[in-house]
Design a protein around this nucleic acid. Structure first.
Length: 252
DNA sequence: AGGTTGGCTGTTATTTAGAT
DNA sequence: ATCTAAATAACAGCCAACCT
């Protein structure tokens, strides 16, 4: 077995040589592997396949949610949001205490775990919008709404440099994870000046199907704008626009 | 290509137990 | 004391879906 004597410690693989650390020091050797077709058929890989099945389900669930919120997500997502959402969806699925291994799913899982999910790591709602808001999900009427009392923008919104204006946006979504379909509605304020002038009270009602039995989601976000010579531009193409899941009703 | 999960085998080297 | 077989340890590869 090859042993590294040099000062360069490596972990990982370069070409066909893998480097790793053991209690005996840093070692190097050829990489190993396993045949793909075996994982698909060998009974020994049953656990692995169950895992893959649930992981795949998480990926799909994340996609439906993202697609539903696409209108808002366009300007408020960072490059690794998909990975983070998949990660969280896996947790949701793993919280399913009903289904057997490999068949655990979002419906029987803990959709509430998505509350607080930030779609944009560069601009989190939790550290941007300090004005108190109240989210309401009324399953009977199908109204998914957000309320903000009047507030002073420059005090209650931490905006990235260059910001002159902003919008408050929200969305309500009713998602059928099994059919991979959804119903969505979203709202936005006018472009408001980011200054010391108190806003009007904001009330946004996003209507989905009344008396639905599906999981319902409420997302809230802020879009930042910069005014240049009278024209409004999305600030840095929305790089810092926060958007987060603020309320979830898991379904009946 | 990488990031997101957990599970399992193949490969390899080293450590330990057993045998001569 | 020395050789051999088995146990141990560690990581790569691989699967699943999806996006940038």
């Amino acid at each position: 077995m090859a042993r590294q004597k040099g000062i360069i410690k490596l972990k990982g693989t370069i070409g066909d040589i893998t480097f790793y650390k053991t209690q005996d020091g840093h070692l190097a050797r050829e990489k190993g592997g396993i045949d793909a077709s075996r994982i698909k058929s060998d009974p020994a890989f049953q656990r692995t396949r169950e895992n893959g099945s649930e992981f795949g389900r998480a990926g799909k669930a994340g996609k439906v949610l993202r697609t539903a919120l696409r209108a808002l997500l366009l300007n408020s997502a960072d490059g690794r949001m998909v990975s983070r959402l998949t990660q969280q969806m896996v947790k949701v699925i793993q919280a399913d205490m009903v289904s057997i291994r490999g068949l655990r799913n979002v419906i029987d899982g803990e959709v509430d775990l998505l509350v607080g999910f930030e779609f944009n790591i560069r601009g989190k709602l939790g550290t941007s919008l300090f004005a108190p808001f109240v989210g309401t999900i009324d399953r009977v009427t199908g109204e998914i709404s957000i309320d903000l009392a009047s507030f002073i923008p420059s005090n209650m919104i931490a905006a990235p440099s260059g910001t002159t204006h902003f919008k408050i946006i929200s969305a309500g979504a009713e998602i059928d994870f099994e059919a991979e379909t959804f119903i969505e509605a979203h709202s936005e304020t006018a472009i408001l000046p980011w200054d010391a002038t108190a806003t009007a009270a904001i009330n946004q009602v996003n209507a989905v199907t009344p008396a639905s039995t599906k999981p319902l989601f409420l997302a809230l976000g802020v879009e930042f704008y910069q005014e240049v010579n009278g024209a409004m531009y999305p600030l840095k193409n929305g790089a810092f626009n926060p958007l987060a899941v603020v309320k979830v009703d898991g379904g009946v």
